[in-house]
């Protein structure tokens, strides 16, 4: 079975006056139809860059240096801008962007912004589009009577839900949710996540959820990818990830994350800071912070290997130190 979305060896750098920022380096993952994938990692680790690349929305100074993105057998990177715009963006892949609070244009009504998305991609009447918009809003729990409001008249949670409604407007196959709940308070966060989960299940959507917050990923996604400094360090099912993280970084990350259930233990934190991507460390990018680093780690980039069934990890040490598990 071929995946709906297949990312292979994606390498994208940002050109700056100081040199290239190696934001995405050899990233590979795939997404099955109906699957929900979480990408987690600290801020600045390249999560959002990957997400933007999927829609070719990378900033102007971005350079693709290799790899492919295949959507349903179609090479997205090879498509011209016009084709991407018409056929991929929002129609097949839509997104709930980071900081959705600011993603709604303040000078247009919420309704109009959703209608605009529909009219851009589908040849339907304005009336039809409006009808669909109201349905969508109802679906995400917004009273259709508020549809004509401006974004500033919405609360944070409502804006986020409206964004979700907008993301669903053209019945996309994939929805990328980039930190969908970051700025929300805990209760609203839970509500929004519930909406996302429900919709994903009901509509059979494929979803990529990006978050620095592991609990959000844990709650929502079937599969979890951990990124560190522009590379994927571990990729496995969410259950497996939380039970048996293999990469020292994942271990640290999950360890740093308090569990509401389960035994209490001391929070483990990772010392040091993520590297400067202008000049990342050679070999394994995590080695300067890794408690288990060896000489090899400083020289050779560890490949992402399926070391256990359905569990991929990029670490030289992973099999040599079973006690570490």
């Amino acid at each position: 079975m071929t995946a709906l979305l297949e990312v292979r060896g994606l390498k994208m750098h940002y050109g700056t006056v100081k040199g290239d920022v190696k934001a995405v380096d050899d990233v590979s993952f795939s997404l099955e139809a109906g699957e929900s994938l979480g990408i987690a990692g600290e801020s600045g680790c390249g999560k959002t860059s990957v997400a933007l690349a999927l829609m070719k929305l990378q900033p102007g100074n971005a350079k693709f240096l290799g790899g492919s993105i295949t959507l349903d057998g179609m090479n997205v990177l090879a498509l011209d801008d016009e084709k991407i715009r018409r056929e991929v963006r929002w129609k097949r892949i839509s997104m709930v962007p980071q900081a959705a609070m600011n993603a709604l244009n303040p000078v247009f009504t919420v309704k109009d912004q959703i209608i605009e998305a529909i009219l851009t991609h589908e040849d339907v009447s304005e009336k039809e589009a409006e009808k669909r918009t109201l349905e969508l809003l109802k679906r995400v729990g917004i009273d259709p009577s508020r549809a004509g409001n401006y974004p500033h008249e919405f609360s944070g949670g409502m804006k986020q839900r409206a964004m979700i409604a907008m993301a669903l407007a053209c019945n996309p196959e994939i929805v990328i949710a980039d930190e969908p709940t970051t700025a929300l308070d805990v209760i609203v966060q839970a509500q929004v996540l519930k909406v996302i989960k429900t919709l994903q299940r009901d509509l059979g959507l494929s979803m990529i959820l990006i978050s620095h917050d592991l609990s959000v990923v844990a709650e929502t996604c079937e599969r979890t990818v951990i990124m560190y400094a522009g590379s994927i360090v571990e990729n496995t099912s969410t259950v497996e990830m939380f039970r048996h993280p293999l990469h020292p970084y994942s271990v640290g990350l999950i360890g740093a994350f308090p569990k509401l259930t389960g035994e209490r233990k001391r929070l483990e934190s990772i010392t040091g800071n993520p590297p400067n991507l202008l000049d990342p460390p050679p070999g394994c990018r995590f080695h300067p912070r890794c408690p288990h680093a060896r000489d090899v780690c400083t020289r050779i980039v560890p490949p992402l290997l399926e070391t256990h069934e359905n569990h991929m990890v990029a670490c030289h040490m992973v099999n040599r130190h079973p006690e570490y598990r």
């Binding site: 929305l57 715009r85 963006r89 839509s94 997104m95 962007p97 959705a100 993603a103 605009e116």
Partner: peptide, 20 residues
């Protein structure tokens, strides 16, 4: 952010610039 969103929505560059 809303400009990036407008692009993500698949709006053409003219609409992004002159409308949004």
């Amino acid at each position: 952010d809303y400009i990036q969103l407008a692009r993500a929505k698949g709006l053409d560059e003219r609409t992004v610039l002159y409308k949004h």
